[in-house]
């Protein structure tokens, strides 16, 4: 099936099988390796991308489903050279160890930031519960989110 969609701001096309997952198309056809494969069953959030501005799991999304939609990955952020507030805060707070979960956190943080409101620590902790980090214990991640969103 031929699909066309907006990927990180530009219109792209791809030939995909109905059973192809969005994550595989993004990584293999478009080389967007920020999108990480974690659990594959919707527990870890490492594969989070924005579809029409909302955070979805690309490992549980059919590629055909983004036909005509708008997909944003980490590669589509900070295109004018500067980091986004969430990226900067994650760096400044040392909220990254192995980095595998980081793109997922960046995309959730970006979604929350674009909503243009403030979040309490309790809200932040609840909103990132779909993203697992096995290194940091979340303390610095929460600090970073508070810095950018609090």
């Amino acid at each position: 099936m031929r699909i066309s969609f907006k990927l990180n701001g530009r219109l792209v096309e791809a030939d995909v099988e109905p059973n192809e997952l969005l994550i595989n198309v993004l990584r293999e056809k478009f080389g967007l390796t920020s999108v990480k494969y974690g659990c594959g069953i919707g527990e870890c959030g490492a594969c989070t991308v924005l579809v029409d501005g909302k955070p979805v799991l690309s490992c549980l999304t059919l590629a055909v489903d983004v036909n005509g939609r708008e997909v944003t990955t980490v590669e589509g952020l900070a295109r004018e050279g500067g980091l986004t507030p969430i990226q900067r805060a994650l760096m400044e707070e040392g909220a990254i160890q192995c980095g595998y979960c980081t793109p997922g956190f960046v995309m959730v943080g970006e979604y929350l930031y674009r909503k243009g409101r403030k979040y309490s620590e309790e809200e932040i902790r609840s909103l990132i519960r779909g993203n697992l980090c096995r290194c940091t214990g979340y303390v610095n991640i929460v600090k970073a989110f508070k810095k950018a969103l609090g």
Binding site: G45, P55, V56, L57, L60, V108, Y111, L127, I128, G130
Partner: peptide, 12 residues
């Protein structure tokens, strides 16, 4: 609704 899954699951 508030307790169900993570944000991404609730979006999907």
């Amino acid at each position: 609704v508030k307790q169900m899954g993570g944000l991404q699951i609730r979006v999907m």
